[in-house]
Amino acid sequence: MDMTELKEYLPLLIPLVIAQFSLLGYTIFHIMRHDSYKHGSRALWLIVALVGMQFIGPVLYFAIGKEEE
């Protein structure tokens, strides 16, 4: 893939990367700030968030792992 081609993908890639990384970043921030979870442990959720980083990981955490407020 040469530079001109890459340039064509940028309008797609930049927002995609920003959206996904902010979702991932927020999830990790949330996991680190809490000590207890509905299910699972901190290590487990960090792994899940990173492995399923596209958005499945964060979603699983917020649906199943996050403690009820």
Binding site: Y9, L12, L13, P15, L16, A19, Q20, S22, L23, Y26, H30, Q54, F55, P58, V59, F62, E69
Partner: peptide, 25 residues
Amino acid sequence: RTKRMMIILGIFLVVGILSPAMAKL
């Protein structure tokens, strides 16, 4: 406040970008 709205909208945003991106690729 429980950030559920933000997460859901974020995911729809990602999916919205992902669809044309996959076609493009």
